[in-house]
Amino acid sequence: MLTVCLNYQTLSSINLLAVAGFYAWVANRQSNLRWTYLSLFFVDWAIWRLLVNQQITEPLCYAAIIGGSCLYIAQIDPELRRSRTRQTRHYLRLLGSSIICLAAFFFHQETGLIPGIISLIAIFAGLGLRIRAFLMVGTATFVLTVFYQLVVLSFQYPFSKWVIGLIVGIIFISIAANFEQRREQILGIFQNWANQWREWE
């Protein structure tokens, strides 16, 4: 650490990765995963320097570094894995996934393809791993992306505004009709889903 602090301007990415590897070895020897936070710091630093040296200014790349680090800490920290810190773990996962998804949403709305793909990945990760934060952020990002694209489409092609309005109206009428016919069944499904939701990470 002292060597890094004194020579940070002349260190290469390979040096940083070597230091990261050393602290990963220390974590394994000490059986203490928190030593890997230093490894994570040096790996992030190496990737960040690589992006700067390659003059890559893509905000999503930098957001992925920060968000991925938050998700890593939320996943492996021994204190956060306890049941009493479940809410803190949830908030940290919300923070990490939100940084990535919102960066994709704000900086890649030309076609909406990148935020759409990332939000779907988050949704499927949430469903597959039973993690609420991923599902919530992924769903919110996907809805925002779809809504934004519909607004852009309606301004660029005024006629499509009426088509979209007609389709949305039909969908809402269909949902309302089905809800009235199957109220008890739908409420039972929602209640069952809400009970399962409380047990998710």
Rank of each mutant, 00 (worst) to 15 (best):
G165P: 10
Q185N: 08
L166R: 09
E201G: 01
M1Y: 09
Q55I: 01
T111L: 12
G68M: 05
G112L: 10
P59I: 03
F179R: 11
P158D: 08
I47E: 04
G126R: 04
N195Q: 14
I14Y: 11
N178G: 11
T139V: 03
F105L: 12
Y72D: 07
W48D: 05
Y8K: 09
L92N: 10
S12C: 05
P115G: 05
Y148L: 04
Q109V: 00
G67Y: 06
F155D: 07
F159I: 07
L127S: 00
T57N: 10
I117N: 03
G188E: 15
L187D: 09
E58W: 14
A18C: 05
I99A: 10
S119F: 08
Q55N: 09
Q9T: 06
I121Y: 14
I117A: 06
N15M: 01
R130Y: 08
S160T: 13
A122R: 06
E58D: 15
W35Q: 04
I14P: 01
Q9K: 15
I14Q: 10
E201W: 11
T57S: 06
Y23M: 07
T88P: 02
H90Q: 11
Q149P: 04
N28F: 10
T88V: 08
G126T: 01
N178C: 08
N53P: 00
T10R: 07
L80Y: 02
Q181I: 02
W200D: 00
G138P: 01
T88I: 11
L40N: 14
T10K: 11
G67K: 03
L94C: 12
T57P: 00
I117W: 03
T88S: 10
L129E: 09
R198E: 13
